[in-house]
Simulated scan of single mutants.
Amino acid sequence: MYRDFANFIHTNKDVLLNKWMEQMKEQADPAILLVTSDVLYEDTSREFLDLIVANVLGTKDGSFNEKLDGFSRKVVHLNWSVHFVTAGLRTFGLLVYSEMKRQGLFNEKKENLDEDIYYHFENWLSSMYNVVVNAYAESWEKTVSIQKTALQELSAPLLPIFDGISVMPLIGTIDTERARLIMENLLIGVVKHRSDVVLIDITGVPIVDTMVAHHIIQASDAVRLVGCQAMLVGIRPEIAQTIVNLGIELDQVITTSTMKKGMGKALAMTNREIVEKEE
């Protein structure tokens, strides 16, 4: 029975593909169609159909897994949700079942034929669900892992500005995992660059609560132990008010409202200053 489904799909591929794409466009999130051209949408759908036929016919040669992996990575990068992909599989399956029944391709001599065929049909769909969802999940996990690693590498850089002066700009929310990364990069960086002063810029941090302040204090204490003075810059009025209301003590941390003021203090602490050149 599985081979009957696959042979029918192979024979009626173009007709089924066009009907399937039209039905899925009605179900698709507008955002998906916005970023997917008609040509790419058709190519991806045709690739999906070829994988279905290969899986059902059992013609899984050495390149099948490679093609499946490539397809799953493509739909993940296109931001097609797993719900859209599995809905596409079910819609296609129902379309094949309906078309075969409409064309009278089922043998009507057998009793309870519809139930028997539908049983095979559900098994067919289930096998494809397992193959597609597993491949999608693996690609999604790989993509998330790569993105997470890239974000971690960029989320807490320590930049040497002058001899003895470094800056760590922070952007976005700081959670426990990121705070650990900040501490690690900070300690490694100040030792590597032989920093006497490090400016921690929180201009791009939307919320400074007790946990964030605690991590900043810990980072300041840690760099002090390796002979570096930490300075907290980018203290906005609302952040200052939050710190006061929470009763957070920053007595051991030098603070300034802007990077410009912080850099001026850092230069003074290293016995330097910026002077205008006379013409």
Rank of each mutant, 00 (worst) to 15 (best):
E47D: 13
V82A: 12
S81Y: 06
K60W: 08
L95Q: 13
H77D: 15
V75I: 11
L95H: 08
Y97W: 05
T91V: 12
R90T: 13
N79C: 07
N65W: 05
V53C: 10
G58F: 13
L57V: 09
S81L: 07
A87I: 02
Q103T: 05
V56Y: 07
N65Y: 09
F84P: 01
T44F: 10
S98K: 15
L78K: 10
D50A: 11
S45C: 13
F71A: 00
L89E: 06
E47Y: 08
H83W: 03
L95A: 00
V75P: 06
V75Q: 12
T59P: 01
H83L: 09
Y97K: 08
L68S: 00
I52A: 02
G93T: 08
R90Q: 14
T59Q: 15
V56T: 14
N65T: 12
F48M: 03
L57D: 12
V85K: 10
T59R: 14
V96W: 00
R73N: 15
L49V: 10
V75K: 04
D43P: 01
R46Q: 14
N65R: 15
F64A: 10
V85M: 09
N65F: 04
F92K: 03
R102G: 06
G58D: 11
V53M: 02
V82P: 11
S81H: 07
T86S: 11
E47S: 13
R73T: 03
L68K: 05
H77W: 07
F48H: 10
F84Y: 11
L49Y: 01
R73D: 00
F64W: 10
K101T: 12
T44H: 01
R73V: 02
G88Q: 02
F92L: 11
T91N: 15
F48T: 00
R46D: 14
G62V: 07
K74A: 01
L78M: 04
T44L: 04
L95I: 11
R102S: 13
Q103C: 05
V85H: 02
K74F: 08
N79I: 00
E66H: 10
S63L: 13
N79D: 11
T91D: 08
T59N: 14
G88T: 09
G58I: 00
V75E: 09
L57P: 06
L49I: 06
G62L: 13
